[in-house]
Structures are given as C-alpha cells and as structure tokens.
C-alpha cells in the first residue's frame, strides 16, 4: 500500500474506498469495529430476530448457478452521504454532517423517533432496543474514548471519529500538519486483505483522494442521490478459460 505523505488540505473530508476484489468476507472489520466502538452484543435470541447492532457488516449475495455461481461479499457501513437522507428528517437535530464531512450522531440529543433509520436507504443505522449488558469480563475491553449508548437512541458508523480527533489533537500538540497515515478506522486497520482504505478526499496525493474519481469505483444506490463518501471498487470477474478469445476486462481499480 503506497501512501504518500503529502500535506492534506486545511479541512479534511474523509472518505473510504472498499475494494470488492480484495474482500474475502472474513468479517475482521466487523469484529474490530465492535471492539473499537463499544457496540453492544444483543445475544443469539435478538440476532435471530434482526435485533443486532453492526456498524460494519458483511452482506453476502449469491448470483447465478453452476459455473456462473458468484458470491459477493460487500462490507456495508454508514455510507457517510453528502446529501444524507437521515439528517433533515430528525426533528431534534440529533444528526448532521460535520465540518469534515462525517455524518455524526449526537447521542445526547437523540430522542429515538427512528425516522433516520427508516430514511437510510442503506440501513446503516441501528437502534438501541434495550440497555445492553457487557457480561464480565467483557466490560474490561470497553474503549474509554467511546461512550456507551443507552436504550432508546440511534447509533451508526462514525468513521472512528475518536481516532480522527486524537490524531488531530496530537498534530496540534506537536505543531505540525495532520498526517493522513496517522488515521485508520478500526475496520481498515484490521482488514488482512487491505480491502478498506481510508483517507482525505481533499488530498489529491493521498491513497483515497488520488483514486476517488477513477471509473472503477461505484457507489451503492446512486439513483437515490445520496452522494456517499464510501465508494466500492467494482468486482472484476476473471475471464473464463474457455472464452480465451474474449477480450480481457481491464482492471482500473488500483491507481
């Protein structure tokens, strides 16, 4: 992974590229996210009733049959939309896009109308149906930088805003510019295939900023017009050996 150290622009705009070619569906990102962000474990009974909370999840889709059978593993988190449908519908302004482009959820302000959850076409928002418990010794691994959520409020992927803030504070203390490589959300950090890349979209030399407009990238549900800041590197199917004459598709994913 070639990361340049060029200086990011004054106000960063955070984005993520998820490479579907590299993703193996191992779910390490989901586990790391859970550990980093104190996401509650609802239990087996709730899991069977769609009651789990997963800021980062792997959605598997199966297509075709026989030789054409394909499995696609798609990590889905909050897509951090520029035109987020979840935001204008909240009656108490508990969610908004902050200066760095992250759609943030204000836990203290949320009253739990759940309108945002319905209006998210990606279903990237999760509701605290109960006060969840961390049975001993699990409470020991709770991250002190992230608040535990109470019952009755919404939560969602924050791009590990606590890590961003820590890096920004550190840069300020050391009186230097923020270095993009200092920031890695838990999911990107833990991905063994390096399928998730996180960076500043205002930094044209950065890993994500440089690749952001390449044609191999797609967004989920472009027709809804949400302008997400998570883009997927399209899955490129390897050519079938029996169709040797067919032109080889070009992979434009890696910049």
């Amino acid at each position: 992974m070639s990361q340049t150290d060029s200086k990011p622009a004054a106000t960063p705009r955070w984005g993520m590229i998820i490479d579907l070619n590299a993703c193996t569906g191992c779910s390490a990102c989901a586990v790391a996210c859970r550990a980093e962000n104190n996401i509650a474990i609802a239990g087996a009974k709730e899991a069977a009733y769609n009651g789990t909370l997963q800021w980062m999840r792997i959605e598997r889709t199966w297509t075709g049959s026989g030789r054409n059978f394909r499995v696609e593993n798609r990590p889905v988190n909050c897509q951090q939309c520029d035109a987020a449908p979840c935001e204008p519908v909240c009656p108490v302004l508990a969610t908004y896009t902050n200066a760095e482009g992250i759609s943030v959820q204000v836990y203290n302000r949320c009253v739990g109308t759940r309108y945002c959850g319905l209006n998210c076409p990606y279903q990237g928002r999760f509701f605290n149906w109960f006060d969840y418990a961390w049975p001993s010794p699990m409470e020991v691994q709770l991250n002190p930088d992230v608040s535990r959520r109470t019952r009755g409020i919404m939560e969602k992927c924050s791009f590990c805003i606590q890590r961003i803030l820590a890096a920004e504070r550190q840069a300020e203390l050391e009186k230097r510019a923020l270095r993009e490589r200092d920031i890695q959300p838990a999911c990107a950090q833990s991905c063994p295939a390096e399928a998730l890349r996180f960076g500043d979209l205002n930094n044209p030399g950065g890993a994500v900023g440089a690749a952001w407009d390449s044609s191999g990238l797609e967004v989920l549900l472009p027709e809804v017009g949400t302008r997400p800041k998570v883009r997927y590197a399209r899955r490129v199917t390897p050519p079938d050996s029996r169709l040797a004459a067919a032109p080889t598709p070009t992979a434009e994913v890696e910049a």
């Binding site: 309108y115 959850g117 928002r125 149906w129 109960f130 006060d131």
Partner: peptide, 15 residues
Amino acid sequence: IVGLGVTGLRRPVFW
C-alpha cells in the same frame, strides 16, 4: 424502563 425492544419492532421495521 426496559426499552423499546419489548415491542416487535426491529431494523428495518422501525415503525
């Protein structure tokens, strides 16, 4: 007191 989980609502049927 217990939370809205006592209802049958779950994602994505929030209402």
